[in-house]
């Protein structure tokens, strides 16, 4: 019973796997993503709205 590797070996042997494509690969597509803008922390946004409002009071335990 041939092992998986043996079978693969046969494939490579018999078809002489086309490694030309691997040897001279086409360029992958470029990946472009730019930094996002994040306004400075605690900087007022819009004109009326408050950023970073004070923490919500937690209910007291007990």
């Amino acid at each position: 019973m041939p092992s998986k590797d043996k079978v693969l070996e046969e494939v490579i042997h018999t078809e002489n796997i086309d490694i030309d494509a691997v040897l001279d690969p086409a360029e992958p597509d470029g990946v472009f993503r730019d930094s996002r803008e994040c306004a400075a922390l605690a900087l007022q946004a819009g004109g009326t709205q408050l950023l970073l409002s004070p923490p919500t009071p937690r209910p007291k335990k007990g």
Binding site: D5, L8, I12, V22, L23
Partner: peptide, 15 residues
Amino acid sequence: GAGEGVARAAVRVLG
């Protein structure tokens, strides 16, 4: 780890 044919092809790819 790899079969002979695969190893040989891999060496060819790495050059």
